[in-house]
């Protein structure tokens, strides 16, 4: 699919197959085209070229109201002049479902999102998390083939967001509907998804399971966007690995010790970032480049950790954890992700 807005190409070429019953996330920075793809699936935007297939049926020219797809909007888009029940029943009402069945299904949907007692409230009387769940119930009650979620947790505070992540995943398992979830939060995507598509500049960099994305990123962009990248390239890479290239090692895979064996690199601790349960050590390597090392505060006291600043240290790691971004078949040269291409 390709989508251009005038001279701007928002989606430069995306080809996705999402499996039935899958929790699929589209992850990427803002402006990477993920929301545009979602809106094309929903029918709010028409692709400039390409097609949208739903259950092998071409729905490209079909308006939103005739698609078996429902959306949970970023701002929830609850109807302010209706109470919670009327909001949830809306989809059934416009499809002329009988009153008794409407009531029954709306009640069941509200139970699913644990808002059983809130049917008579107005949206303005609800908290952000509750509104989010009403929006979810309003979409789920229609039993769509695909549920689209456009950064639905973005407006919630961190604690609530974490709760909702688990809850969303649970609800998806219970109802068995395909979820397509748009987010820029890599942690959110990793927590909930069966598979993730990483978007950059209107293209997909990689589609994979959360674990594969993290352990084996195909491109430098993916390595950087999912987790901390710890890239070493050019002469910095040659000093450590003996050859030019682009390499990545996850911070938690690196051991930091004065007498680490076998020592892979030496350097100086530039800064220690204290994060409570873990610390991040920023180590300037002697051969150039900087690596972030993560270490749990198992035995160290805070003082002794912070005391490491300016110390000489030796780093070691298992070579199996080194990701060669130039090597793998899916891997692309660094910088390929920033290339833009005009729509055909």
């Amino acid at each position: 699919m390709v989508k251009s807005f005038g001279p701007v190409t928002a989606v430069a070429g995306v080809d996705l197959a999402i499996a039935d019953g899958e929790f699929f996330s589209m992850l990427g920075p803002s402006g990477s085209g993920k929301t545009t793809v979602l809106r094309m699936i929903a029918g709010f935007e028409q692709p400039t070229s390409g097609r949208v297939l739903l259950d092998d049926r071409d729905v490209t020219g079909v308006p939103p109201f005739a698609r078996d797809v429902n959306t949970v909007f970023q701002d929830y888009a609850l109807f302010p002049h209706m109470d919670v029940r009327a909001n949830v029943e809306y989809g059934l009402r416009v499809k002329r479902v009988g009153r008794a069945e409407r009531r029954e299904r709306a009640t069941a949907a509200l139970e699913t999102v644990r808002l059983g007692g809130y049917a008579d409230r107005r949206p303005t009387q609800l908290s952000g998390g509750q509104r989010q769940r009403v929006a979810l119930a309003r979409a789920l009650v229609n039993r769509p083939k695909v549920l689209l979620l456009d950064e639905p947790l973005g407006a919630l505070d961190l604690k609530l967001r974490r709760e909702m992540q688990l809850e969303l995943k649970q609800i998806q398992r219970d109802v068995g509907i395909t979820f397509v979830f748009v987010t820029h939060d890599q942690e959110e995507a990793l927590t909930m998804s069966d598979r993730i598509a990483v978007f950059n500049d209107g293209r997909i960099e990689q589609v994979d399971t959360p674990a594969r994305l993290y352990e084996a990123p195909a491109t430098a962009f993916v390595a950087g966007f999912v987790g901390t990248s710890n890239l070493l390239r050019g002469s910095d890479a040659r000093a450590v690995f003996g050859r030019d290239g682009t390499f990545s090692i996850r911070p938690e895979k690196i051991h930091l010790d004065d007498d680490a064996e076998p020592t892979k690199a030496r350097g100086t601790v530039r800064a220690v970032v204290y994060l409570g349960s873990v610390n991040h050590y920023l180590v300037d390597l002697d051969g150039g480049g900087t690596l972030t090392v993560l270490r749990q505060n198992l035995r160290d006291s805070t003082d002794s950790a912070l005391d490491q600043e300016g110390r000489r240290v030796a780093l070691s790691w298992d070579d199996a954890h080194v990701i060669d971004l130039d090597d793998s078949g899916a891997g692309q040269p660094v910088g390929a992700g920033t290339e833009t291409q005009e729509a055909p």
Partner: peptide, 11 residues
């Protein structure tokens, strides 16, 4: 988004 939500829900 309210108009889109309405269309999305089948109206």
């Amino acid at each position: 988004s309210l108009l889109e939500a309405s269309a999305d829900l089948g109206a």
